[in-house]
Structures are given as structure tokens and as C-alpha cells.
Design a protein around this nucleic acid. Sequence first.
DNA 1: TTATCATATAATAATATACTTATATATTCA
DNA 2: TGAATATATAAGTATATTATTATATGATAA
Lengths: 114, 114
Amino acid sequence: MNQQQLSIEQATVILKLLADKTRLTIVKLLQEQDCCVCEFVEIFQVSQPSISQHLRKLRDADIVKEDRRGQWIFYSINTENSTFSFIEQVLSQIPSQKEKLIELERSGKRITCC
Amino acid sequence: MNQQQLSIEQATVILKLLADKTRLTIVKLLQEQDCCVCEFVEIFQVSQPSISQHLRKLRDADIVKEDRRGQWIFYSINTENSTFSFIEQVLSQIPSQKEKLIELERSGKRITCC
DNA sequence: TTATCATATAATAATATACTTATATATTCA
DNA sequence: TGAATATATAAGTATATTATTATATGATAA
């Protein structure tokens, strides 16, 4: 059942991207639901450029894709990427982070546009 | 079937360690067979201290353990570590590296002591 | 059209990482 | 015991990473 489709070089690229608490949490959250940049800024309590730069790395690797909805840019997981099943396997082994989305909702900071 | 026993912090520690081509290959090779330091030096064509430092990081995280056999120190995967199944899942998705051991054997550099 | 809001990029600084060479330690064997 | 071999550690250096502040860009709404 192992696909073993990734070279060891490709795997290290993906692992490096996931080996950061902010990015790993971002990707895990995106598995729950699409989110926009300002939501991540709120969740992680870091500067907006910091989040933007993390998202850029994930986007450059085609792990996530962006989708403008009015004022906001929503990010989602690019499930069509050939590395997706590898990422999914990693994510399946870490705890859900959805309490962060629930907390966001409770504090009225969830963006629900369009 | 997901154990989800790791916190996101623990997962990033492990992922950081695996997110390096040399270390990822070392761990994958150790899944095939125990190896000693000088074999890794031969395989990766880097300095002995470089390998020693990679192994130290893996050892400090209890991912591998060491076992002196005469002159040599053999490393093996610590399957008793609670992070082992997480690591196993990652490793299952990258290609076998055992051709490196076969090549080592062919060039007469394989250590088979004790 | 101008102000505001959301996001991206540039520049910079602090810290982490992964090598190298030099050297110390531990084991084996003549 | 002393030389040779295997490994670890120390010190130094180059590069990568991740944050910050300042600023640019792009969309919306008064």
C-alpha cells in the first residue's frame, strides 16, 4: 500500500517545510478548513509578514494554493500535488488543531466571506 | 488506526531531524541493517565528524541507539521509542536505500565484525 | 477618487544548521 | 606498552532559517 513515489530528495524538501511548528499547524488546520492570512496571524500571534512568508514557502512547493475571495486570500491544501499522500500520512499522525478554529470563531475573528 | 500520540511540538522535533538527506538516509538504512560510523562515512563521502554529529542528534532524540562491538560502534534504530511508529510511517514512504549497502559490500567496505 | 483593509515583498538581524580541521578518547593488536 | 584504528568532541566558518519593521500592491467601500 506504500506508494513510495517520492525520491529521498523530494521527501527532505517536504519534511523541511513541515518541520516548523507554524507551518505544520497551518497545513493541519487547512486540512480542516480553508483559512485566510489574517486568521493565521490571529491564531499564531506573529506578524503578518511572518505568516505570509510561511505561506509563500508552502505555495512555492505547491503544498497549498491560494484563492482570492473579495478582500481576502484564502489558502487551501493542493490535493492534486503528487506529494499530497506523503503529507497526508504525516498529518494523520499529529493531533487535530481544530480547537484553534473554534477559539477563533468564539472570539469573533473567523472570516466567513462570500 | 492512527495513534496520534505525538504532540505537534514532538512531531516538529522528529521532522526536523528527518528533514536532512544524510540523516533520513541513515535512518532508512538502519531499518535495513545496523551500521557503524565508518560505513556511513564511506557511503556519504563526508568527514567522519560530520557523520558523528548527525548520529549524535539522532541518538540524543533516542531515535537510534549505539552498541559497541569491538573496535566499532554500531548504530541501530531504537524501536522502543514512542516516536518510532511516526518515524516508521515516514520511512515507509521513501524508497529503499539498500543499494548503498550492496555497493558497500561490493567494494569490500562492509564491516562484519563479531 | 481617496481612505481603508488585506496581503506581499524587501531589507535586515538574530539564531540555527551543517560542514570543516584539529584534537581527545577508547579499543585492539603487535 | 605503544602504534594504529574508530569514534567523539571542540572550535570555527559559511549558509540557511525565521523573525522583525518598513513599504508596496491590490481590492473594497465611503
